[in-house]
Design a protein around this nucleic acid. Structure first.
Lengths: 271, 271
DNA sequence: GCCCCACGTTGCACATGACGCAACGGGGCG
DNA sequence: CGCCCCGTTGCGTCATGTGCAACGTGGGGC
């Protein structure tokens, strides 16, 4: 789609780190950028947002005020700062309700979480990283991190490896630009990763222990659509001390069964 | 804040269900309304959105296109229709990262404690029993026990019953291993408990009087997350002589309102 | 304790950018 | 084959979003 927009008169004085994403409707574009800024910073004041956006304070204020009226942004009590609001959760809920994968997966994830006692995640490929679509915390997991909506590196997670393992060679090359290390267990050598991905493809599941975070372990299995493409990955994760290799072997059959059942519900292998 | 824009020439032919929420920045306001429309409908075409919004087709199109560039909206393949995009999940992830049941609940619990005069508790399911997350003592509570951090049997408390009532059958079976009696009012017959849980689910709240301790009464209501899962339970508890059935009926609306408001803050979209 | 700065917030006037219009292309159905 | 309805796009106009300046306030430093 061609950029139809003439350049703006002004010379973009700001450091706004323009994503290059020009919007069709300027004010809306700015407003949405505000959301992204808040997502990144967690909490920002009007002045800060304005500077980041390269617009006048008052402009930023009106954008934020409008967002606030829709509940997408709220101001933290007392202080004048702003942060993302819960309206986003409702919208996101509507989003995932619409994604058949998530909807079909939910009961299975729940059951799997109950059966394994650990946290179950569902992830898909999105823009060069793993996007976590859903998470069901296991009974023994309290206050475990919520990954939903997060973009997670592909080469350091079990879900990521599954998603990579069935990728076309051409796409794979693009995605594997850099392989940063997060712990000293992270696989950073391209050859080693390639080899592991092959193994993952053969055995039908992947594992990652202490590779993204020390103390975090997970196993994952592929989810296929009606065409047989791997469109998502389901994982069981927990603390390394609890999710030992032996325990992994115990929960693996449950995981594989759940992932297969989900694939089945999405039309794989039918007919 | 006064509505500053003049009405459009047109007489709002649509059923746009104007929330009365005027925005400060019109186009942003409209764009966000588009998100809400899509959240409600699941999938809409430009024309439909335009009609719903009371604007021209082309206007709606540009709004949608801008939303699309930020990933908040995507067009379903083939058909020209639009739906909410995964970008929302990313934003929501940033939201829920800082979202904590206890933290969100605190002001509500306080208010409820003040309004009811009794002690308010917040509990969740953890490893086969109820884990008390927070407690706000009411003004008339003298030296009442502090339950925070305690594991309490599920079948003998109002919170426990709420947490059980919405549990999957499979999990429920596991949890209900033994039903020890703590007083002679404790429900120990599995059939009776099952029946009560069904009633709890229907009426949307639970009660327990003298079932865990003689002289201790409580009513509880469910707290839901964005998916509608019951993730916690909020209760009002006090001495049986004060929290009579009549008094319970008085505080129940307050409790239900608080629990619903909390659910709302956690992203539950009512209904 | 005082002052001063910096922040969030609001009224106003201008010109910019968002809007409605009308026309195009294409896909599905009769 | 032709109709109709959809999403999409160039254009001219004016509504509307914007920058400016001023206000109130709260907190930090001197």
């Amino acid at each position: 789609m061609p950029l139809r927009h003439t350049v703006y008169g002004r010379a973009m004085s700001n450091a706004a780190a323009e994503t290059g994403s020009g919007g069709s409707v300027q004010s809306v574009d700015r407003a949405l950028t505000v959301l992204e800024i808040l997502a990144r910073s967690g909490e920002s004041g009007v002045t800060e947002i304005a500077a980041d956006l390269g617009v006048h304070k008052s402009t930023a204020f009106r954008l934020v005020a409008t967002l606030e009226q829709h509940g997408l942004v709220e101001q933290v009590e007392g202080r004048g700062k702003y942060r993302l609001g819960v309206g986003l959760l409702r919208l996101a809920g509507a989003t995932s309700a619409r994604l058949d994968v998530v909807q079909e997966a939910r009961p299975l994830c729940k059951q799997l979480a109950a059966g394994s006692g650990e946290t179950v995640n569902l992830a898909t490929l999105s823009g060069g990283s793993a996007l976590y679509l859903d998470q069901v915390a296991g009974p023994s997991a309290l206050g475990s991190h919520n990954w939903v909506g997060q973009h997670i590196p592909l080469h350091a997670t079990s879900n990521g490896k599954v998603l990579l393992a069935w990728l076309d060679e051409s796409v794979l090359k693009e995605v594997l630009g850099r392989l940063p290390a997060y712990t000293d267990r992270t696989v950073t050598a391209r050859a080693a990763l390639r080899k592991e991905l092959q193994q993952v493809q053969q055995q039908g599941w992947a594992a990652a222990v202490d590779e993204l975070e020390v103390g975090l372990a997970a196993v994952a299995a592929p989810v296929r659509n009606a065409h047989g493409d791997v469109i998502a990955s389901m994982s069981i994760s927990g603390p390394t001390f609890r999710l030992t290799v032996a325990r992994q072997a115990e929960v693996l059959p449950l995981l594989l069964e759940a992932a297969e059942e989900l694939s089945h519900r999405l039309g794989w292998g039918r007919r």
